[in-house]
């Protein structure tokens, strides 16, 4: 048994900054190197089974890039990541299938992440098809049970995404991520677009899932209050670097890095006292 569910070591990823043709030619003649954004700069961390790890950082700090690189959407420049001891980036096709069965992502946008032409049955059974899984109790029984677990009613299977509210769509996204019974879920701004009451429902759901199924969650958000409530440990990202790692209980009182303090104080102002006018 591995000690950590996921272990990330020295992960780096940069993007070349887009330039107009004229600037490209100019910089070629001036022998400038292409300008790059270091979205992830030597990131190392790990997460245990049944843990909710929060990732906090300002806009553009590299949070989504981290999620997308772990999910194989971006290729890393260097570094490694192990899920249950298997290197995600060097795995072959069949190994990858197994890795991503255990690691699923919930996206920010409840509107754009579900195909509007597919009904809920099709959306939810797609991962089962990819992994050649046939539930013994029959597809519909299985899917209905899963829908119930995320608080959606049984008559949902024949409906289309447009017939659901934002919060319900986010539940469908979570349900799809849970279908294969993964050990880890990466949630990138999964509640930011939702109104506060639905947000509270989804946070409640995620905590219950952790308790019932023992899954781990990497919870990414720019909202200090939300991350502090849901996770037990928090990593702060700044310009692609980890600047602080701290227990949530100690975040407000003990966070040391200048940037962490700035983020916390801004959040305190906005949530608790209001900006000076």
């Amino acid at each position: 048994m591995e000690e950590y569910l996921l272990k990330v070591e020295n992960l780096c990823k940069s993007f070349v900054v887009e330039k107009s043709l004229k600037k490209k030619i100019l910089s070629f003649f001036n022998k400038e190197r292409p300008e790059a954004v270091k979205a992830l700069d030597n990131i190392s961390f790990n997460i245990k089974s049944g843990e909710i790890l929060g990732i906090l950082g300002e806009s553009g700090s590299g949070k989504s890039t981290l999620a997308r690189t772990l999910m194989g959407i971006h290729k890393p420049d260097s570094g490694s990541a192990y899920l249950l001891g298997k290197n995600i980036f060097t795995a072959n096709k069949t190994e990858k299938l197994d890795i991503y069965k255990n690691m699923q992502m919930v996206f920010q946008d409840p509107y754009g992440s579900l195909d509007p032409r597919m009904n809920i049955r099709q959306i939810l059974s797609e991962p089962l098809k990819i992994h050649n899984i046939i539930p013994k109790e029959g597809i519909d029984n299985f899917l209905n049970k899963s829908l119930e677990e995320v608080g959606l009613s049984k008559d949902s299977l024949d409906k289309y995404p447009s017939e659901f509210s934002g919060g319900q769509r986010q539940r469908i996204g979570i349900c799809r991520a849970l279908i294969l019974n993964p050990k880890l879920i990466i949630a990138d701004e999964a509640v930011s677009a939702l109104d506060v009451s639905v947000q509270a429902q989804i946070l409640d759901l995620l905590v219950k899932l952790k308790e019932k199924r023992g899954i781990s969650i990497i919870f990414i958000s720019h909202d200090v209050a939300v991350v502090r409530q849901i996770s037990s440990r928090i990593i702060l990202l700044y310009h692609g670097k980890i600047v602080e790692e701290i227990d949530s209980d100690r975040l407000l009182s003990d966070a040391k890095h200048e940037y962490s303090r700035k983020l916390i104080n801004a959040a305190l102002t906005l949530r608790e006292s209001g900006i000076n006018r």
Binding site: S165, V196, Q199, A200, L203, D223, A225, I230, S248, L252
Partner: peptide, 24 residues
């Protein structure tokens, strides 16, 4: 009042916000 209670807070005690029961 219910909307205010559903807002995640940054008070010292760490507690999940209370969702409003039912749906719109």
């Amino acid at each position: 009042a219910d909307l205010i209670a559903a807002l995640p807070r940054l008070t010292l005690e760490r507690k999940l916000p209370s969702p409003i029961k039912g749906t719109l």
